[in-house]
């Protein structure tokens, strides 16, 4: 069986502050509905870029956790 690809959770963005500022800047001046829709499009674009369903499942699982130790779901 092929080895499953691992979701990268180590820092992987060269200039994190630049990226973050652009991400927030993208939403500037948009309504909540527009921002939500933009986020959805962004997630779909990134997901397509990743392609690997195993990796996407790991990302969805990690994102679904929240709160201390993921207890508060």
């Amino acid at each position: 069986m092929d080895e499953m690809s691992e979701l990268i959770t180590k820092a992987n963005i060269a200039r994190p502050d630049d990226f973050y500022a652009e991400l927030i800047g993208l939403h500037e001046g948009r309504t909540k509905e527009e921002s939500d829709a933009l986020n959805a499009r962004l997630i779909l674009l990134l997901a397509n870029h990743i392609g690997d369903i195993d990796v996407l499942r790991q990302a969805m699982k990690a994102a679904a956790k929240s709160g201390h130790d993921g207890a508060r779901n």
Partner: peptide
């Protein structure tokens, strides 16, 4: 803005378990 706070809180949530989010936390460079 609300969306900026949503992303901020998401970064903080993820930073507890995922190393990648820590360089995004900005309490002062």
């Amino acid at each position: 803005s609300d969306i900026s706070r949503i992303f901020r809180d998401a970064v903080l949530e993820l930073s507890e378990h995922h190393e990648f989010a820590r360089p995004l936390v900005n309490s002062g460079r």
